[in-house]
């Protein structure tokens, strides 16, 4: 039996909105310590890693690990019926043929329940190793979203180069080139979440497809900051922390110079 009650149902909408352009179905792994999902897009160029820890739920019961295969597109349609202030409860049996979603309005004057069939999805066996990153950049998520959008107007690939001076985003296209350098501003009197911070043990520079980075920025509403992790010749990780709950992480394979 699995039952999880989330007071801020709007959070679930934001999480689903942050992945719906990348995957159409996914196996949610319900385990005693939380709800997680790991899935690659159809081209295997990007991977999504979601974790919603059990502590973030108002009530959480999970007797044993349950793979809950769901069609993301249908899930998004169904969750649209919930108000963003609704309390959402997710329930299913141990060998679930279907999952029930319960939406309770804030002042409890409207209760809706939806039942969705589960699907059997044979996952590739993914293993995302814990990685220490030689360059970690934490910056305002809205700024990163704006930057990726502006760069995509000019080129398809952005080269991200991190040194202790800061992060330089460069792109080239038919109309020309664009470079944006973001400098760390630790001294600034900005709030914590408006600062750009760079921790670096080794400079790193790599190229990534802007199309994917732009789809990752759909997670911007989840967190005021975004963290980029880079290691030479490895995929980049783009992480949006969900306060007191977990994270949505995206991994993107680099483009290799021919």
């Amino acid at each position: 039996m699995f039952e999880a009650r989330l007071l801020q149902g709007g959070l679930l909408k934001k999480v689903l909105d942050s992945i719906k352009d990348i995957i159409t179905e996914g196996n949610f792994d319900c385990s005693p310590n939380g709800l997680s999902l790991q899935a690659m897009d159809s081209s295997h160029v990007s991977l999504i890693d979601i974790l919603l820890e059990s502590e973030g739920f108002e009530h959480y019961r999970c007797d044993r690990n349950i793979p809950m295969g769901l069609n993301i597109t249908n899930l998004v349609k169904m969750i649209k019926c919930a108000g963003s202030e609704d309390i959402v409860t997710i329930k299913c049996e141990d060998k679930p043929d279907n999952v029930t979603f319960l939406f309770e309005s804030k002042d409890n004057d409207k209760i809706s329940d939806f039942e969705m069939k589960t699907m059997t999805i044979d996952d590739e066996h993914l293993l995302v190793p814990d990685q220490t990153y030689t360059a970690v950049v934490k910056m305002p998520s809205a700024e990163f979203q704006r930057l990726c959008r502006d760069m995509a107007a000019i080129g398809d690939t952005v080269n991200i180069s991190v040194t202790k001076e800061g992060v330089r985003f460069s792109t080239t296209g038919d109309m020309g080139t664009a470079n944006i350098t973001v400098r760390p501003n630790p001294s600034g009197d900005q709030k914590e979440e408006e600062r750009t911070e760079v921790q670096i043990t080794e400079p790193v520079s790599a190229g990534f497809a802007l199309r994917y980075l732009n789809s990752f920025t759909k997670a911007t509403p989840l967190s005021p900051t975004v963290t980029l992790g880079m290691v030479p010749n490895l995929p980049i990780v783009v992480e949006y922390k969900i306060a007191d709950m977990g994270h949505v992480r995206y991994y993107l394979a680099p483009k290799i110079e021919d």
């Binding site: 160029v45 995929p235 991994y251 483009k255």
Partner: peptide, 14 residues
């Protein structure tokens, strides 16, 4: 431009 790698090389647990 460079060519796009996939994540299979890095994350597929074969």
């Amino acid at each position: 431009e460079g060519s796009q790698e996939t994540l299979d090389f890095y994350f597929l647990d074969v």
